[in-house]
Design a protein around this nucleic acid. Structure first.
Lengths: 201, 201
DNA sequence: CCTGGGGCATGACAAATGTCAGCGTGAAGG
DNA sequence: CCTTCACGCTGACATTTGTCATGCCCCAGG
């Protein structure tokens, strides 16, 4: 019997996935969570063999949760589940010690299969995605550039960002400019979109 | 036996929801689709009692599909399923003749319940969401303002938009300006975000 | 010890953006 | 018939944004 927990914010898909996995003879869902921190707590309590974690969750993403779970329960394998197959996500997931990386538009049966293979010590990664992640190279943005770009994502003006990050407006402009350069885009908005698509934020 | 079809782009959650619904004694899933147009085609072929349609799908959204299905199969009830409980979505769904509107973060059991209630002639709408949709009022943007704002969403410059929509740059600026005014925001990006959050695009 | 990079700041300049006041059309409604 | 509103355009103006050069501090690597 493989004991697993599942973290996913949308209750309806969480419920559906839980029943789906519950139908498998060799899998037992011993816990559920709706956020990253909750997942860590549940993992602590239930000590599962495998943790399925969604990346996109409000209040702490799945990758951060993965790191913590790996630290607290080194024996627990982590499967990262995501809507978006972004290269940067994959990279970060691997660095966080994940054993598998699944995108939600692969068929449903893959999920149980991945759980079994991971339990058996294998790693499960989509080959095309792996290639994309490698060819894309690592995140070229410096820490501060990331901060500023992230702060710009919601349509904030330079003045807003400067205030929020305690920087001068000129500095914010400089960071944005260099981020635009590194993403090889034409303006803030494109830079933000590109960085998000690469999973750099 | 209630015959239903399900349209949802993410294969994994589609599969999970299908098995979930398949477990119900009185429900039979007779078709699946991964896009709006495909949903219409499947509905035509299978003539289901109820069609479950996701709003967010690439290549034709669920609400447009709902309209067409209602036209082709007046006896078929439509349930709209969505990740985001945006007031504008609800409004458009109702105008398209939907019988139910569910957000994916309500519990999984709601789904089968909604199918049954809809089949029985009831309408299923989250009360809080209905209130929000009413209090928010209708979409204040004119057709062209919507077009221009939508075209601006990807970070396009004024010149890009003008070219794409065959307008003068000044005209584009004017539409953007009035959209910014109507959304009571400070710039393009905020206007786009606000309009999207309201389901106006 | 020197160099390169990240971090932070100026100031100056060019380009893009946002605002306003107009002006004309045509379609819809009182 | 007159008004209103969406649509499309112009020109002028102020503000914001993006770019570039330059300077400083600190730290790590060769």
């Amino acid at each position: 019997m493989i004991r697993i927990i599942l973290a996913e914010d949308q209750a309806m898909v969480r419920g559906a996935l839980v029943t789906l996995l519950g139908l498998e003879d060799d899998i037992e869902v011993v816990g559920e969570a709706a956020s990253g921190p909750e997942a860590v707590a549940v993992a602590r309590k239930t000590e599962p063999d495998v943790a399925l974690l969604d990346v996109e969750m409000p209040g702490g993403d799945g990758i951060t949760a993965a790191e913590e779970i790996r630290r607290v329960l080194p024996g627990c394998r982590v499967v990262i589940l995501t809507t978006f197959g972004r290269p940067g996500y994959l990279r970060r997931a691997m660095e966080a010690g994940a054993a598998a990386f699944l995108v939600k538009d692969s068929p449903a049966r893959e999920l149980a299969a991945a759980v079994r293979r991971v339990r058996a010590g294998e790693r499960v990664i989509d080959p095309g995605l792996a290639a994309a992640a490698l060819s894309a190279g690592p995140n070229p943005l410096s820490g501060r550039e990331r901060d500023v770009l992230a702060a710009a994502a919601d349509g904030s003006t330079i003045a807003d960002i400067a205030l929020r990050l305690h920087l001068s407006e000129g500095t914010v402009r400089n960071y944005l400019s260099s981020a635009i350069g590194k993403t090889r885009t034409r303006n803030r908005v494109e830079a933000v979109r590109h960085a998000q698509a690469q999973g750099w934020l």
